[in-house]
Amino acid sequence: MPIVTPASEINLAVAGMLRDYADLLQEQGEDGFRWRACRQAADVVAELPRSVDCLSH
Results as ranks from 00 to 15, higher is better:
residue 1 M to F: 00
residue 1 M to H: 02
residue 1 M to E: 14
residue 2 P to R: 08
residue 2 P to Y: 00
residue 2 P to M: 05
residue 5 T to F: 12
residue 5 T to W: 10
residue 5 T to R: 10
residue 6 P to N: 05
residue 6 P to K: 02
residue 7 A to E: 15
residue 8 S to H: 07
residue 9 E to Y: 05
residue 9 E to V: 02
residue 10 I to T: 09
residue 10 I to R: 09
residue 10 I to C: 05
residue 11 N to A: 01
residue 12 L to A: 13
residue 12 L to K: 13
residue 12 L to H: 14
residue 12 L to V: 01
residue 12 L to S: 15
residue 14 V to M: 09
residue 14 V to F: 08
residue 14 V to G: 03
residue 15 A to E: 14
residue 17 M to V: 12
residue 17 M to L: 15
residue 18 L to P: 04
residue 19 R to G: 01
residue 19 R to T: 05
residue 19 R to D: 15
residue 19 R to S: 05
residue 19 R to C: 01
residue 21 Y to D: 13
residue 23 D to A: 09
residue 23 D to E: 15
residue 24 L to W: 10
residue 24 L to A: 09
residue 25 L to K: 08
residue 25 L to P: 01
residue 26 Q to C: 05
residue 26 Q to S: 04
residue 26 Q to A: 04
residue 26 Q to R: 12
residue 27 E to H: 00
residue 27 E to R: 04
residue 27 E to W: 00
residue 28 Q to D: 13
residue 29 G to R: 06
residue 29 G to E: 12
residue 31 D to Y: 02
residue 31 D to L: 04
residue 32 G to W: 09
residue 32 G to D: 15
residue 32 G to K: 07
residue 33 F to Y: 15
residue 33 F to E: 14
residue 34 R to L: 14
residue 34 R to Y: 11
residue 34 R to W: 11
residue 35 W to Y: 13
residue 35 W to K: 01
residue 36 R to M: 11
residue 36 R to S: 07
residue 38 C to V: 00
residue 38 C to E: 09
residue 38 C to G: 00
residue 39 R to S: 12
residue 39 R to G: 05
residue 39 R to M: 10
residue 39 R to K: 14
residue 39 R to Y: 11
residue 40 Q to K: 07
residue 40 Q to E: 15
residue 40 Q to F: 03
residue 41 A to V: 08
residue 41 A to E: 14
residue 41 A to K: 12
residue 42 A to C: 08
residue 42 A to G: 05
residue 42 A to H: 06
residue 43 D to L: 00
residue 43 D to T: 00
residue 44 V to H: 09
residue 45 V to H: 03
residue 45 V to D: 06
residue 45 V to F: 02
residue 46 A to E: 14
residue 46 A to T: 04
residue 47 E to L: 09
residue 47 E to Q: 13
residue 48 L to F: 07
residue 48 L to G: 04
residue 48 L to S: 07
residue 50 R to C: 09
residue 50 R to Q: 15
residue 50 R to W: 12
residue 51 S to E: 12
residue 51 S to L: 04
residue 51 S to I: 05
residue 52 V to H: 06
residue 52 V to F: 06
residue 52 V to R: 07
residue 52 V to L: 07
residue 53 D to C: 01
residue 53 D to R: 02
residue 53 D to L: 04
residue 53 D to V: 01
residue 55 L to G: 06
residue 55 L to F: 02
residue 56 S to M: 14
residue 56 S to P: 08
residue 57 H to D: 15
